[in-house]
Design a protein around this nucleic acid. Structure first.
Length: 248
DNA sequence: AAGCGCGACAACCGCAATAGT
DNA sequence: AACTATTGCGGTTGTCGCGCT
């Protein structure tokens, strides 16, 4: 309510507020202004800097894009695992989740969740993500390991639980392929096509063999960079709590 | 080459919480 | 205490680029 008043007042004073993508010149102006005046007081910044943007817009641009410690590039496996872990605890509390991923913004995490995870979850008849991670969060030792590691050295955060799971799953995948040259070749070919998927699920499957239909349907899960396994196998594996219970 | 659809990401909007007067 | 201004959050929309037909 009060903000609307302020916004209207501001718009009355300068009717040419810019919208849409920021230009290099605007970015430069904002960076230089903050360098000399510091962060905060965004409405004052918007008025004083010469930018024809709202204070909100300036703040968002700085926090999500221009701030020096904003990390660019794809999320790592460890970051993805942590997002799942924290989302299972807190739900859509993006800013709270972002606080545990140094250099990542709430907007980025939110986008990641919506564009990749939610979409893939729709392919599954059950809420696979939650089932998967609830089994994890029931293991307090596992959580303690993750949290301690990140707290002690957030810049070089390595999730030992994830690494161990990764190794175990990789071995299982490799053993499932060891007797099938055709499937192995088909699998490797399909990996290239599936690199853009972060997660994929299927509701059934009780054995660990990777069949042609798994590959054709994209029913593989990326556990780490370039390592895949069938969704059903992972689901059974994690739903039974084997991987996580063994970690402590 | 052009048009279309889709995914990924940036940016906006409304509302709530907080700070300041 | 009441009011206003500012900031922060989460949901939603807009835009762009890329691949496919």
């Amino acid at each position: 309510m009060s903000e609307k008043k302020g916004a209207l007042k501001y718009e009355d004073e300068s009717m040419e507020l810019r919208r849409g993508p920021w230009t290099l010149e605007e970015d430069s102006l904002l960076v230089h202004y903050i360098a000399s005046h510091g962060e905060g007081r965004w409405n004052l910044l918007a008025r004083s800097s010469g930018l024809k943007r709202t204070g909100k817009s300036c703040r968002l641009r700085w926090l999500n894009y221009l701030k020096p410690d904003v990390k660019r590039g794809n999320l790592t496996l460890e970051e993805k695992l942590l997002i799942f872990e924290l989302h299972s605890k807190w739900g859509n509390r993006w800013s709270r989740i972002a606080q545990h991923l140094p250099g990542r913004t709430d907007n980025e995490i939110k986008n990641y969740w919506r564009t990749r995870v939610q979409k893939q979850a729709k392919h599954m008849k059950i809420d696979g993500i939650r089932c998967y991670w609830n089994s994890s969060s029931s293991n307090t030792n596992n959580n303690i390991i993750m949290n301690q590691t990140m707290h002690e050295n957030p810049q070089e955060f390595i999730n030992p639980a994830a690494m161990q799971i990764q190794d175990e799953l990789q071995n299982m995948v490799l053993s499932s392929f060891s007797n099938s040259g055709d499937h192995q070749q088909h699998y490797h070919n399909s990996i290239n096509e599936l690199q853009t998927l972060d997660l994929a699920f299927m509701a059934d499957s009780s054995n660990g063999a990777v069949a042609d239909q798994d590959i054709d349907a994209g029913n593989l899960i990326e556990m780490a960079h370039g390592q895949w396994m069938t969704c059903g196998l992972l689901e059974n594996y994690c739903m039974n709590g084997v991987a996580f219970d063994q970690l402590s």
